[in-house]
């Protein structure tokens, strides 16, 4: 890192560097990373390939290597497959809504709008607020006799949103879109600052209307951010736990909104099968990785 080289010149450089005390300063952080990230990461992989189970403290029972058995068990489990399908449903609804709405609202917010701070606060506050609080509010709004159904009157779905097996996952997708949107608006707002004004101006002199300018100047100008938004939305979607746990009462109705992370909790901790839970976790990470790479690829090809 050359940025700091100037002030490093004053002292003599040894094998430990010019200011070896730096190692000491960074040590607590390094210890933290090793115990909280590196070691558990390796441990997770180890558990997934072994017949791992909880034992009473102090008891040492061999935990044999079982190869891909845990993965085979997980991949043939209909509930696990359903949880990944549910994530698919979630992403199909959440990702397009998120990208379109956040870009449109950021564009509307950009450039000399009155009360911009007020709008920003309104959009941003759901993102900052605890999921548990907001889930509590949405539960009431979307319950059978709740405000939303009262407003919809005869159009209200039956069974109601959160207890309807074809609407439970879409409801969660809507909730998460609403909760996270402010953050993505902020990302797009920052990106819009770097789209050159001259491009807009020259497009305008060429007779492009607002829609054409949005389509041909703004959208390509923020493409890098769109990839970031896609990847972050995919990661958020894959990590759903609080919403299915509380909003649809444990992945209900009848498993229609169960998610991989909810299954990791149920299998690993409630039913004490950490080995299959770890295997689900690894599968989830692989799926997220592949989807993120795909999002990146789509962007590059266009």
């Amino acid at each position: 890192m050359s940025t700091a080289s100037g002030d490093l010149r004053s002292t003599r450089r040894t094998w430990w560097g010019r200011q070896p005390i730096g190692s000491l300063f960074a040590l607590p952080y390094l210890v933290f990373v090793v115990t909280i990230f590196a070691y558990p990461l390796g441990f997770a992989v180890w558990i997934a390939f072994h017949d791992y189970f909880f034992t009473a403290p102090g008891v040492d029972v061999p935990k044999p290597f079982v190869g891909l058995d845990n993965f085979a068990a997980v991949l043939t489990d209909p509930q696990v497959l359903e949880s990944f399908r549910n994530i698919g449903v979630f992403l199909v609804i959440n990702v397009p809504l998120t990208v379109v709405l956040s870009l449109v609202l950021a564009t509307a917010l950009d450039g000399g709008i009155r009360w911009a701070a007020g709008y920003r606060i309104a959009f941003y506050v759901p993102y900052l607020t605890a999921s548990v609080s907001l889930v509590g509010v949405w539960m009431l709004l979307f319950s059978s006799g709740g405000l939303v159904n009262e407003v919809l009157g005869p159009l209200a779905p039956n069974p109601s949103w959160l207890v309807n097996s074809s609407l439970a996952m879409p409801s969660i997708a809507l909730f998460v879109t609403w909760k996270q949107l402010g953050f993505y608006i902020l990302l797009y707002l920052a990106a819009l600052q770097s789209v050159p004004r001259e491009l807009h101006e020259s497009a305008e002199t060429d007779g492009a209307n607002a829609w054409q300018r949005f389509r041909n100047v703004t959208v390509p100008g923020v493409r890098g951010t769109t990839v970031l938004v896609l990847v972050l939305a995919i990661i958020t979607g894959a990590n759903l736990f609080t919403e299915p746990y509380l909003l649809t009462n444990g992945g209900g109705p009848d498993g229609a909104s169960v998610t991989p992370v909810l299954l990791i909790y149920q299998r690993g901790i409630q039913q004490q099968n950490p080995d299959t839970a770890a295997a689900i976790g690894m599968l989830l990470v692989i799926v997220v990785g592949v989807l993120s790479l795909a999002a990146n690829r789509i962007n590059r090809e266009r």
Binding site: P40, F241, I269, G281
Partner: peptide, 17 residues
């Protein structure tokens, strides 16, 4: 690297640890 490790993968081993 830390930014890239999902907490959900670490949940079970961290709980055990």
């Amino acid at each position: 690297l830390v930014q890239m490790v999902p907490f959900q993968l670490l949940m079970i081993p961290l709980y055990v640890q």
